[in-house]
Design a protein around this nucleic acid. Structure first.
Lengths: 349, 349
DNA sequence: AAACTGACCACAATCGTTTGCGGAGATTCT
DNA sequence: AGAATCTCCGCAAACGATTGTGGTCAGTTT
């Protein structure tokens, strides 16, 4: 847009000097006399000169912008990740462009292309539920664009990633249910393409194994979308079993929420009849009745770490013209115990 | 970042023609022969040429980017507004940069400056809770940057705005409580700087007046932050009154939620003892017990309308070099009646 | 007095793309 | 055949900033 922008040329014309002198004066170059510097700075101040970032970006082949692709903004977890990213990015002098894939692979493809065209300096990506092939990512990666994946990562990539320890988080959650005396623990499994789904399932299984409890196939129900509705349907199915479970560990909070609805509608009590544990600690989870026990993921911290890794990668590359070794940051989860799982009352620890 | 970018020059060199010819060939200019066009397009396809948006932006003094400033991303309402904005912006060929003020005036100032420096073509703004002076906005407005305000608007500005009809939404909510037989209706008031706070209060008052009910000062309690905690404290205060209210209409859902907590902890029943109505229809509201009656704001639509207005303004201005007349779009709210307010059972309508 | 040294600044190229203008060669018209 | 008309393409400037190179003028050195 052609605002009434003040450019370096305007200052130069008004002062009867050349644009290059103005440029150098503004950055305190030793070649410029103190008087000229003073005059330039004062006029720049007076006219409220702001450098044109677009011109700068073109000149330096660097936009100082990070591109972010997330599945959906409305998820509390992803919102907090964004805040973490912005926190680090801003203080390092980077802007952030956020795009949503809406859990669609097609949209993810156009997003990544749009970000590339905008010449972002790097990308932070959490893949969609549908993403099972990765050519669209590989092709951009091949062009040398720095990328960091977070939460829902592209595992085969030779890139840095930030994840939470889903496995041990799930294990801890399941162990907690076992400690509460649950013997038939069901699991609501998530979208099949995602690594986090497998990790959470694995944590559940390990906990059972550690306690010499059998893993029963019919107690594991898939919720490929991970929505409230699916959780409800899955739980209804579980409740119809002749020997119904006495606990449900869900792959995420919405599914757990759906399960709670089904349990209550069946006239059963939480946690007395069936204990429920979720994953991600959504905003609403503490507001449910009973409040939902959940595995908290440090979203803000994840955003911070991912942005830090990416910026380090960008600046390393611009110096040494080489990619730094990829790093993987694993963040700790934290089990937030609330009433939905407390059959025995608060644990002593 | 200096990816392995293919430029128009690369194509020109390889084909032994000039960059200008390549440029024209790519946009099907009549001056270029069919053979040349074919050759250029095929090579561009083969090399996967993507135009450099940064160079384009500089050349045309237009970034095709909209800047957005919202108070907080984690609010369900604002997330949906963003989705509406992206929907319209993308299909019109615009990118979107989102910034959060975190309800801080200071942050809002730096955000608006950063967006200006990025040379966005226009801005979509919802002001922070703290914003009571507007010089930072005026100074950018004076430079000719198109702006559209939404939800929390800058009223004195000579700019387009998109709001919901807070007044009639609040009136409808209050009337609904009156219809349910409530006679002592309290109001939890919101942040004092915001226009929406005043409108909602005014709707509440008008509904009382319409029904010849007295407006009692002590039934109006301020929640300057509009949080769950404040709502709880405010409700506790109301419950201690000798003649306690039989209904609470809150300026937003978190405050209503807090009130519900206080009411339940006091051993009272919702809605039998005290009916509760919120505003904004947050995601969690339908999940509460009882489900919270709330005034739904069409967030997605608001985002769409705001983006449309802004883009129209941008393109009008680039043609006629004149600002179009400011427009104000008022969207209808919709009262979502749930159990938290149903003293009498479902209304017949 | 000639040469040298700084201090200070301007010129011009550059990033990638667009676009007004002009120009060479082929074709058509008179 | 000469002029006019097309067709098709290249030159160069421009967007706003940065930066290597070189130049002018003063003062200093031999």
């Amino acid at each position: 847009m052609k605002y009434n922008q003040v450019t370096i040329k305007d200052i130069a014309r008004e002062l009867g000097i050349s644009p290059s002198t103005v440029s150098r004066a503004l950055k305190d170059h030793p070649d410029i006399s103190p008087q000229t510097k003073k005059a330039v700075n004062e006029l720049a101040e007076k006219l409220n000169y702001q450098p044109n970032i677009v011109a700068l970006s073109l000149r330096q082949s660097k936009t100082n912008t990070l591109g972010v692709i997330i599945p959906e903004l409305v998820h509390f977890f992803f919102s907090t990740v964004i805040s973490g990213i912005e926190d680090v990015a801003y203080s390092a002098g980077y802007n952030v462009i956020i795009t949503q894939s809406n859990e669609s692979l097609q949209r993810e493809k156009t997003d990544i292309k749009a970000l590339f065209n905008s010449r972002v300096d790097g990308m932070l990506i959490s893949v969609s539920r549908e993403t099972s092939s990765f050519e669209h990512i590989e092709s951009i990666l091949a062009k040398g664009v720095p990328m960091v994946f977070f939460d829902r990562v592209y595992e085969n990539a030779n890139s840095s990633t930030v994840i939470v320890d889903d496995l041990s988080g799930a294990k801890e959650a399941t162990q907690h249910l076992i400690d509460q005396g649950c013997t038939r623990i069901a699991h609501l499994e998530g979208p099949p393409n995602l690594g986090i789904t497998k990790q959470r399932l694995e944590g559940y299984i390990q906990a059972l194994n550690d306690n010499k409890m059998p893993v029963q196939k019919d107690l594991i129900v898939s919720c490929p979308l991970g929505t409230i509705e699916e959780g409800k349907i899955a739980a209804e199915q579980l409740l119809k079993m002749p020997n119904r479970p006495d606990a449900i560990f869900a792959t995420n909070d919405p599914a757990a929420m759906g399960a709670m609805q089904a349990i209550k509608e069946a006239g059963l009590k939480i946690p007395q009849d069936i204990a429920v544990v979720g994953f991600s600690n959504w905003f609403f989870s503490s507001l449910l009745e009973p409040p939902l026990t959940s595995v908290d993921q440090p979203g803000f911290e994840m955003g911070q770490e991912a942005a830090k890794l990416l910026i380090r990668q960008i600046e390393f590359k611009s110096k040494d013209n080489e990619d730094p070794a990829p790093e993987t940051k694993v963040l700790k989860t934290r089990l937030i115990v609330r009433d939905s799982s407390l059959k025995k009352g608060k644990p002593k620890k």
